[in-house]
């Protein structure tokens, strides 16, 4: 296998971080929906906490994406 092919495979594997981020974000969103349905008057606060949590969760996916891009830049 040529080095370029291996680099492309590695880039594809790096984007698998999206899997964990997706599961984490869905769990957080589900719990937030539950919390809002239980206490609709607190929806503003729940919303801001949710968005902060989602941002931090999403960044794991973004790290994988950035590493994939860095790997792709290495392909000659």
């Amino acid at each position: 296998m040529s080095p370029n092919g291996l680099i492309a495979l590695a880039a594809g594997l790096a984007v698998f971080t999206g899997l964990g981020a997706g599961i984490g974000m869905s769990l957080a969103t589900g719990r937030a929906a539950e919390a809002v349905s239980r206490q609709p008057e607190a929806s503003g606060k729940i919303n801001s906490i949710l968005i902060l949590g989602l941002a931090i969760t999403e960044s794991t996916a973004i790290y994988g994406f950035v590493i994939a891009l860095m790997l792709l830049a290495k392909i000659v």
Partner: peptide, 13 residues
């Protein structure tokens, strides 16, 4: 590092 990579990755994406 995380602040920089997050914004960089999202906007580049």
């Amino acid at each position: 590092v995380s602040l920089a990579c997050r914004m960089f990755g999202n906007i580049l994406g």
